[in-house]
Deep mutational scan, measured.
Amino acid sequence: RKEMTAACTPRRRIINLTSVLSLQEEINEQGHEVLREMLHNHSFVGCVNPQWALAQHQTKLYLLNTTKLSEELFYQILIYDFANFGVLRLSEPAPLFDLAMLALDSPESGWTEEDGPKEGLAEYIVEFLKKKAEMLADYFSLEIDEEGNLIGLPLLIDNYVPPLEGLPIFILRLATEVNWDEEKECFESLSKECAMFYSIRKQYISEESTLSGQQSEVPGSIPNSWKWTVEHIVYKALRSHILPPKHFTEDGNILQLANLPDLYKVFERC
């Protein structure tokens, strides 16, 4: 597991931080080997919608929660590849102030007048994250320049770009939802926020969305749709870069829909 690298990086740093090793061990302890084997050997059937997909393993048909699986995938990559990410360069710098204002204007932020003026909160978020810029760049390849612009994001899987519609809320939550006081809790909560931002979430995906850094293989055609990215990038990574937690067998994120021999018997009677 320590050699797990989802995106190509030129050289690998050895990380011996106790906090990170502890988080890696927790993933191992909570892992479910049968689910790992199923995901490793599954045959992708198709997307139901951005949140759900169908896959077959041996004779069984499964309904998989793409949102939760991708979130767990990105969390584990962030923990196992800690401080070893490439950088996704933004085509132009994104001012943190503008991103924070967009987030505060969104109902998702939960902002009320009692929280104070949005401009003041946005300025605080910019200054707060600028103070964390060195650590964010060093460990997470999340790059913020001296003017308070976001200029780079971590490359977690080759050819995958997170849904940038979720970027404003991500920046807001970096400042408000991460435990910045304790090292282990900081790395864990920061990785979880980043994983949620990178995950496939239906509120940020339309039929026209593209999450891939590449064009489709047909010359002159439109960019790959999110469905292509889910199948050929995300579920491909799920084959080798995730140890599913045991609770996925109990919380409805992986559901067995049918045993195909039983279905064949039904059709034979028709």
Rank of each mutant, 00 (worst) to 15 (best):
Ile169His: 15
Tyr139Lys: 04
Leu150Val: 11
Ile200Gly: 01
Glu183Ile: 02
Ile205Met: 12
Leu90Asp: 02
Ser141Thr: 11
Gln56Leu: 12
Glu188Cys: 14
Phe170Ile: 00
Leu167Pro: 01
Thr112Gln: 14
Lys68Thr: 08
Pro219Arg: 14
Ala53Gln: 01
Thr18Lys: 07
Met38Arg: 03
Trp52Ala: 03
Ala94Arg: 15
Glu25Cys: 09
Gly148Lys: 05
His42Met: 13
Glu147Gly: 12
Gln51Trp: 01
Glu123Met: 14
Lys118Ser: 07
His32Ala: 12
Glu134Asn: 07
Lys246Pro: 04
Leu153Val: 11
Leu190Cys: 07
Gly116Asp: 13
Ile171Asn: 02
Ile169Ser: 13
Ala103Phe: 03
Ile200Tyr: 06
Leu172Pro: 00
Glu113His: 11
His247Met: 09
Leu23Pro: 00
Glu165Val: 09
Tyr198Ala: 02
Leu104Ile: 09
Tyr80Thr: 13
Leu243Thr: 09
Pro219Cys: 11
Tyr160Ile: 01
Val161Ile: 07
Thr5Val: 05
Ile233Phe: 03
Gly252Leu: 04
Leu39Thr: 02
Phe267Trp: 10
Pro261Asp: 13
Ala53Asp: 02
Ile222Gln: 14
Pro244Asn: 01
Cys8Ile: 06
Glu25Tyr: 09
Arg269Ile: 05
Ser141Gly: 14
Asp181Thr: 08
Leu121His: 11
Ile157Thr: 02
Pro223Met: 15
Ser22Lys: 13
Ile77Glu: 02
Asn179Arg: 10
Tyr198Pro: 00
Ile200Glu: 01
Pro10His: 06
Glu25His: 11
Lys192Glu: 05
Tyr198Asn: 03
Leu90Ala: 03
Ala122Cys: 11
Glu165Pro: 08
Pro219Asn: 11
Ala100Phe: 04
Ala7Thr: 06
Glu217Trp: 11
Val218Gly: 14
Ile254Thr: 04
Tyr160Trp: 02
Gln215Pro: 07
Ile233Gly: 06
Met135Asp: 04
Phe248His: 03
Pro219Val: 13
Lys227Cys: 04
Thr176Glu: 10
Asp138Glu: 10
Val87Leu: 08
Glu72Ile: 06
Thr210Asp: 08
Gly148Ala: 09
Pro245Cys: 03
Leu64Cys: 10
Glu134Tyr: 06
Val218Ser: 15
Phe140Trp: 15
Tyr198His: 04
Glu114Phe: 08
Ala55Gln: 02
Val126Glu: 08
Asp98Met: 08
Glu71Phe: 06
Lys227Ala: 05
Val266Thr: 15
Leu35Cys: 08
Leu238Asn: 00
Ser22Glu: 15
Ser189Ala: 11
Thr210Gly: 08
Glu268Pro: 11
Thr112Arg: 09
Gly166Ala: 14
Leu104Cys: 07
Arg269Ser: 11
Ile205Glu: 04
Gly120His: 07
Asp251Ile: 04
Asp115Pro: 06
Leu142Thr: 05
Glu26Thr: 09
Met101Phe: 05
Gln30Lys: 10
Glu268Phe: 04
Leu17Asn: 06
Asn65Gly: 01
Glu108Gln: 11
Asp98Val: 06
Ile233Asp: 04
Leu39Ala: 02
Asn84Leu: 00
Pro154Asn: 02
Glu25Thr: 13
Pro93Glu: 09
Ser240Thr: 11
Glu108Thr: 09
Asn159Cys: 10
Glu143Trp: 09
Phe248Arg: 00
Glu185Ser: 10
Ala7Tyr: 06
Lys131His: 07
Leu150Ile: 07
Gly116Lys: 07
Leu90Val: 05
Pro93Asn: 06
Asp158His: 12
Asn224Tyr: 15
Val178Trp: 01
Thr9Asp: 07
Glu217Arg: 09
Gln76Val: 01
Leu142Glu: 02
Arg201Glu: 01
Glu26Ser: 09
Tyr80Lys: 11
Gly120Asn: 08
Phe97Thr: 09
Arg173Tyr: 01
Asn259Pro: 06
Ile157Trp: 03
Ile151His: 12
Pro163Asn: 08
Leu102Ser: 15
Gly110Cys: 15
Pro223Glu: 15
Tyr204Lys: 03
Leu238Thr: 04
Val20Asp: 02
Gln215Leu: 09
Glu72Ser: 10
Met196Ala: 08
Arg1Met: 15
Ser216Gln: 13
Glu177Trp: 10
Ile144Leu: 10
Leu167Ala: 04
Val161Asp: 06
Glu146Gln: 08
Gln76Leu: 01
Ser240Met: 13
His57Asp: 08
Ser240Arg: 13
Val178Thr: 06
Asp98Gly: 10
Leu23Cys: 03
Pro50Phe: 07
Gly31Gln: 13
Lys192Leu: 06
Leu96Arg: 00
Asn259Ser: 09
Leu150Tyr: 01
Ser191Arg: 01
Ser221Val: 15
Leu88Tyr: 10
Arg11His: 08
Asn259His: 11
Thr112Asn: 09
Ala83Met: 06
His40Asn: 11
Pro168Tyr: 03
Phe140Ile: 05
Asn149Leu: 13
Lys131Trp: 14
Phe267Asp: 15
Pro117Lys: 12
Gly110Pro: 12
Ser189Phe: 04
Ile157Glu: 02
Cys8Pro: 06
Asp251Asn: 08
Glu147Lys: 11
Met196Gln: 15
Asp105His: 09
Cys270Asp: 15
Lys131Gln: 13
Leu129Gln: 02
Glu114Arg: 09
Gln56Val: 15
Met38Gly: 03
Lys192Cys: 06
Arg1Val: 15
Gly46Arg: 15
Ala53Phe: 00
Arg36Gly: 09
Glu26Asn: 14
Pro93Gln: 10
Leu64Met: 08
Ser43Asn: 14
Phe267Gln: 15
Thr5Arg: 03
Ile79Pro: 00
His32Glu: 13
Leu142Phe: 12
Ser216Gly: 15
